[in-house]
């Protein structure tokens, strides 16, 4: 025990190994942002501009898109990247502006929960979507189902 602290003793502890979440979070925001620009504008172009434009969007259009593995991967990637990007952005806002520890905890749990629930629900819909489920009431099915 010395009475005087050694000079240059850091006044706060430094991180000792482990994953640096702040750094990877920062890198993720940049990387996902670049990919999302391509994905979102591609999505908007295909849905709103290409072919017949916005008039083409109906149940059959969505059904057709989600029958194609290419669009399942595209939409799935967009869903995961965008929700984690948005969730992490809101976490950052809470860290910056919510000073009350209780409020902060509630908000952070709320953001995490909504992100996880939306990702699970969205992934479920994208991967298991079937416009013509077998054994359903024919009156409830869209017209193009009769063909198959």
């Amino acid at each position: 025990m010395s009475l005087i602290e050694a000079p240059r003793t850091p006044t706060r502890g430094h991180r000792t190994g482990g994953i640096n979440w702040e750094k990877w979070g920062w890198i993720y925001m940049r990387a996902s942002g670049v990919v999302l620009i391509v994905l979102i504008f591609g999505h908007l172009f295909v849905n709103l501009v290409a072919g017949e434009g916005v008039k083409a969007i109906d149940f059959a259009f969505v059904g057709g898109k989600l029958a194609d593995p290419f669009w399942i991967v595209w939409d799935g990637l967009m869903l995961w990247l965008a929700l984690i990007h948005g969730g992490n952005g809101m976490r950052t806002l809470v860290n910056d502006y919510a000073t009350n520890p209780k409020v902060r905890k509630v908000l952070l749990i709320g953001i995490a929960a909504s992100t996880v629930i939306l990702i699970i629900l969205g992934t479920l819909v994208i991967t298991t979507f079937d416009p013509c489920p077998a054994g359903a009431d024919p009156a409830l099915l869209p017209s193009f189902c009769e063909a198959s």
């Binding site: 430094h14 991180r15 702040e22």
Partner: peptide, 14 residues
């Protein structure tokens, strides 16, 4: 760089 690569380091810059 190690010191600034912390939770309260450069990554908090907006």
């Amino acid at each position: 760089l190690d010191i600034l690569n912390d939770k309260e380091g450069v990554w908090r810059c907006r």
